[in-house]
Computed example of a mutant assay.
Amino acid sequence: MLKIIDKYILKRYLATFTVMLLMFIPIGITIDVSEKVNKMIENQVPFSAIAQYYVDFTIYFANLLFPIFLFLSIIWFTSKLANNTEIIAILSSGISFTRFLRPYIIGATIVSIFALIMGFFLVPKASDGFKNFRYRYLIGNGENEMRDNSDVYRQINPNEYIYVSNYNSDSKMGFNFSMERFEKDKLKYKVSASRIMWNAKDSSYTLFDYRKRKIGAYNDILETLPQKDTVFQFALEDLTPVVYIAETLPYNELVRFIEKEKERGSTNINVYLVVLYKKYSIPVSAFILTIIAVAVSSMKRRGGMGINLAIGISLAFSFVFLDKVFGVLAEKSSAPPLIAVWIPNIVFGILALYLLKNAKR
């Protein structure tokens, strides 16, 4: 008997979640097309690029609103079970509420594993295509706006540091360039230039208004030239990564990228860590939202399914709101990214335990 009920609930869980995705994604695509069709026509975007964009958009959109879709789908079919008195019948047969939750937890496990795999491999590729299309065809200056161009400071090896105040990706030129070399925490020399230009033909750089100051024990040695060609052990574009690069990297590449950026002293490290930690926090949220949804919708209410859906929508958007707020907080402040990313799950986890306790009564 229990196996039949488990299969019945699990089937409804997965089927309703799938239907919810299939219902809302076309709506999202329709709205997106209506907003961007004029810009696409104006920029003469190839049809193949548009088709690939909406494949990427589907994956990106589904991952972005995954908690809302999951929460509403559980609220929907569990409310139907409650209104048809099926839940009362199940619990009246001697099955505990905790045992009643088992197929829901199994369903949440399946969805979480799927979300984890998506977040590790498929979503980064889709994000890359989605973001590139937007910057190339729909947003302002394209390449320039894709990059973190201002006040870039990097450590390129244990002893050398580079700074560029501004970078133009079209001309491959940086402004107010400087490079400092330290040995045993002492400055040995500093190279500066008003401009630094990358020469693709021979992988060299041209420094304009070149100045090099060697720090001596008693006197400094100053070298100045109007222009100097030289070679550095870095690519100028490495100084200005795409602003959303972390979102486009598969898990293993993202971990290596973060380690490299830590060594360089990147100022964007919190942004990259938020992306990494969310790959784990979002799948875990499936369990928390499942428990909350069941606890809220398993009781038959006077207002029927409408009341449950209203509560569900409010809670779902509250979760997404908290997730966004604390994500931005971690990126823009000194708040630890790990704690900030997990706060929504912690808050709603406590709420889930409270609602579950009341639901058992």
Rank of each mutant, 00 (worst) to 15 (best):
P103L: 04
Q44I: 05
Q52I: 04
W76R: 04
M299F: 13
P241L: 03
R136H: 13
I4L: 12
M299T: 14
F348C: 04
N252G: 09
S112P: 01
Y280S: 09
K214G: 09
F47E: 11
A246L: 05
R181D: 15
P46V: 06
A115Y: 06
Y218C: 14
G312H: 01
I258E: 03
P124K: 07
L351I: 02
I105T: 06
T267E: 13
A310E: 12
I339N: 01
A126V: 01
G265P: 05
V320T: 07
K190L: 11
F130D: 02
Y13D: 15
R147A: 15
L91S: 11
D6M: 11
A330N: 07
A286D: 10
I307L: 06
V294R: 00
F97N: 10
Y189N: 02
I29V: 06
N157I: 11
V152P: 01
F208G: 01
I215P: 09
S314P: 00
T30K: 12
V296P: 00
I156W: 06
L351A: 04
S34N: 14
M299K: 13
V37A: 08
A310Q: 09
T30F: 14
G28H: 08
P336Y: 11
S34Q: 14
I346V: 15
I288K: 00
S93N: 15
V55T: 02
A246I: 01
M23Y: 10
D202I: 03
V19E: 09
Y354N: 12
L338D: 04
A340N: 03
N252W: 08
V111N: 10
L239C: 08
E35V: 01
K184Y: 15
M179L: 15
P336S: 12
D209S: 10
L101W: 02
I106F: 11
M146L: 12
F57V: 02
Y137E: 11
P26Q: 08
F66A: 14
K11M: 04
A15P: 06
Q233W: 04
A115M: 13
A193C: 03
V325I: 07
L289V: 01
K262D: 12
M173S: 13
M146R: 08
E86G: 10
I313K: 00
V341L: 04
T240V: 01
S285W: 01
P67E: 08
G119N: 01
F326I: 07
F130A: 05
A335N: 09
F177S: 00
K360E: 15
Y210A: 07
F326T: 00
Y54F: 00
F71P: 04
V294Y: 01
I311Y: 10
M173D: 11
S314R: 00
D238W: 00
L122H: 05
F71W: 10
L309K: 07
I291E: 09
D229E: 13
G304S: 12
G107F: 04
G306A: 10
K184W: 14
N84L: 14
N168F: 05
S204F: 06
V271E: 11
W198G: 05
T30I: 13
R301H: 06
T109R: 03
N219A: 14
G265E: 11
G142K: 11
I41E: 13
E237D: 14
V271L: 13
Y189Q: 06
I90Y: 07
I31M: 08
D32H: 03
Y8E: 10
R302W: 05
F120W: 08
